[in-house]
Amino acid sequence: MNSGVGPFYDGVAHFFITPEDILIVFCLALFGGLSGKQASRGLVLVLPLAWFIGSAVGRFSDFPALPVFLSGLGILVTGILVATAPAVPTWLPGTLAGVLGFLHGLMNGNALTQSSTLFLAAVGIVSSLVVVALITCAVTATLTQNWQRITARVLGSWGAAIGLLSLAWSLRPEGP
């Protein structure tokens, strides 16, 4: 993605025009928020770090391109976790964010191979996702009314449905 205003903004633009990336960050942040403030703090710290490392690995190593269906699968799993809102240990949202953030970072690293200044582009991506994750986690973690938490869970079920459709889309016989 060439925004025309420099590599940092290339990264920002890349994040905001990639719905899979926004969706996974949003679903993970909902999951973290519903799991409590401590889980949210861990998630907000781990997610950008894992994403950045994944971007670097994807760009500078010979790591093979990941299958497209992983993105839909990640959204599906996270969406189901949000919709069902199970009682989970506080480390789980952060760990899941680490794994999925790394995978999406890898995909970003592969997609950004044209960028000569990957570092700034990756910083742009990570900065953008931090903003989305922070706001979503902060809002979700402070929800106290039952209907508010249910609304978050309904959004999670929508995420799961989108993830399932994306997964099927990438696995269909004609290919993605």
Partner: peptide
């Protein structure tokens, strides 16, 4: 009240997935 609107899109997505995959 909220359980049905959660179940419907999820199962609809499942049906759509079946359709997409042939």
């Amino acid at each position: 009240l909220w359980g049905l609107p959660i179940a419907f899109p999820l199962m609809m997505a499942f049906g759509a997935a079946l359709g997409l995959m042939g």
